[in-house]
Computed example of a mutant assay.
Amino acid sequence: MTKNNSGAALIIVLFVVALAATLAVEMSSRMMVLVNKNSILQEHQQAKWYGYAAEALAKQALIQTKKDDKEIVNLKQPWAQEEATFPVEGGTISGQISDLQACLNLNAFRAKPNANSADKLPEIHGVFLRLLDKLDEVESLPLENSQEELADTLLDWLDKDDNRRPEGAEEDEYLSREIPYLTANHFLASISELRTIKGFNPLIVERLLPYICIIPGSDLFEINVNTILPEQAHLLAALLATDTEIAEQILSEREPEGWSDIDKFISDANEKLPKKLKKDNKQFVVNSEYFQLIANTTFAESRFRMTTMMKIKDNKVSILARKFGGDVDE
């Protein structure tokens, strides 16, 4: 073999070795990526299972509450404890349960109007208008038009017909947009749907959040006066058609265990209200069936958030809806 041939062979050998080394490094890098990806997926899955564990604990808290007293739900019971973080193997679990009957269920816009109602509107329509008015008194609402338009467009979005309310909006409004879409004419599934309705800009939704909620598939309009928080006094005032100061007084005099029955609440409220509540009032209750859990969990470097809506009846808890990730208002 000549020197030239020997040099060429050496170059080929070195090239093959370099190529093999490059391929080995590439394969090793890809393997590391796959290992890391698999590890992250496993961590996320474990954090998710911790979320289900929080859900199981919430169910037990609700069942125990009903076993202790099936007639009353109040803020002194096990379900209403403040959010706490519990250490678990490799991570943490925290959760907070709230009463979905301590806020304005917007799906009640689909309820049939009261038989004695002159305007043929669901009862929540007037309550919603009064709530908007009270929030506007504290700090002007960033409304694009009127409060009546906000209530009417929400009603048009939810109701079963295509008849436009005086200040509302039906399909012609939404079909004329750059990206057209139809009105739902059905229950809301999430608060985030409000952002698709005319007039409900992000600032309006943010102001409303402490007072509104969604009960999936239900037009229930029963407010538990034992679980309304003091900071929700505007909501109680709107429900009672009175001043916020009077609502604050009523809540401040509520016993820690709440009112024992609705007649006691009506009696106490009527001592302060200029317009007395009727004794057969169906709008207020002292019991609840619908609750929401917001669970936050961690495992290693993974974080997981789950929102669960539940109904408890006959000491059995059923899951109405789950949402993974995001914020509660999304």
Score class of each variant (00 low, 15 high):
V285M: 08
S39T: 15
K3V: 13
G126Y: 15
L194M: 09
A269D: 04
L141K: 07
E178V: 11
V35G: 10
L277C: 04
D280P: 07
D219C: 04
L135R: 08
I228F: 01
L10K: 02
A111H: 03
G258F: 00
K198I: 01
D268R: 10
L100G: 07
E193Q: 14
P166Q: 02
R207E: 09
E148A: 13
K272D: 01
A118R: 14
L104W: 03
M1S: 14
Q81G: 12
V25I: 14
D159P: 02
N270Q: 03
Q96H: 12
G217D: 14
N38Y: 06
N36C: 02
L75E: 04
I262A: 03
V127K: 11
H44P: 00
D280L: 05
P142V: 12
Q46H: 13
K37E: 15
T92E: 14
Q64H: 11
D261A: 01
S29F: 11
K198D: 04
L209C: 05
K275A: 14
K67G: 07
F200K: 05
R165M: 15
D99G: 05
N145R: 14
I97C: 01
S29P: 00
K278G: 13
V13Y: 02
T308C: 08
D99V: 01
L14F: 12
D99T: 04
G199T: 08
Q77E: 12
I179E: 14
P122N: 10
Y52G: 10
V225G: 03
D136P: 09
P230V: 01
I124H: 07
P142C: 08
Q249E: 14
A84Q: 15
A233C: 02
L182Y: 15
A54L: 07
L135H: 05
K37S: 15
S29G: 03
A21C: 03
S140M: 09
A189M: 10
L194K: 04
E330F: 10
A247Y: 00
I191G: 02
L188D: 04
Y50H: 15
E148I: 07
I214F: 07
M310E: 10
T242F: 06
W157N: 05
A102D: 03
T183I: 13
H234L: 08
Q81D: 08
E289I: 07
N116M: 09
V285P: 00
L150N: 02
E82S: 12
Q45C: 01
Y174I: 05
Q77D: 03
R305A: 14
K272F: 11
I228T: 01
V205C: 11
V25M: 11
N224D: 02
D68H: 08
P166C: 06
S117T: 10
G199S: 09
N107G: 07
T307L: 13
W49F: 15
K275S: 15
V25P: 00
K279L: 09
L203R: 12
M32F: 11
K70L: 05
L251F: 00
D119H: 11
V17P: 04
P142G: 10
A61C: 05
T242A: 09
L320W: 06
F200A: 07
Q46T: 15
N315R: 11
L57D: 06
S117L: 07
S288Q: 04
E139S: 15
A21L: 10
T22F: 09
I294T: 11
